[in-house]
C-alpha cells in the first residue's frame, strides 16, 4: 500500500511540475510550484523523516514561494 501511494504522488508531482514550467502567466506557475512542494512534503512523511518534512513545508511551500510572488510585483507582471 505504501508503494502505491508513493507511485501516485510521484506521478501527480511530475504532471504538476510540467504544468508549472510551461505556463504562460507567472503567478499561476508559482502557485503550481507550491503544489510540487506539497507533494514533496507528503513523500518526506512517507519516508519516515518528520524533521525534513516540516522544514520543506515551511520553507518551500511557505517563504520561498512568497518571495517569488513578492518579486513579481516589482517586475511588473502581477495580474
Amino acid at each position: 500500500m505504501t508503494g502505491l501511494i508513493i507511485l501516485a504522488t510521484f506521478v501527480s508531482m511530475i504532471v504538476v511540475a510540467f504544468a508549472s514550467v510551461t505556463q504562460k502567466s507567472l503567478p499561476d506557475a508559482i502557485i503550481l510550484f507550491m503544489g510540487v512542494g506539497l507533494g514533496s512534503v507528503i513523500l518526506f512523511y512517507l519516508f519516515q523523516a518528520p524533521d525534513v518534512a516540516m522544514t520543506e513545508a515551511v520553507i518551500s511551500a511557505g517563504i520561498s514561494s512568497l518571495i517569488f510572488l513578492m518579486a513579481l510585483k516589482h517586475l511588473g507582471e502581477e495580474s
Binding site: 518528520p50 524533521d51 518534512a53 516540516m54 522544514t55 515551511v58 520553507i59 511557505g62 517563504i63
Partner: peptide
C-alpha cells in the same frame, strides 16, 4: 514552541525561525 522543544520532538531552530518570519510577513 517549535524552537524550544526542538530536541524532544520534530522541529528545531530553522523551522521555528521561519515560522516567526512568516508571521511578520
Amino acid at each position: 514552541y517549535v524552537m524550544i522543544y526542538g530536541h524532544l520532538s520534530p522541529g528545531g531552530g530553522f523551522q521555528g525561525g521561519v515560522i516567526i518570519a512568516s508571521g511578520v510577513l
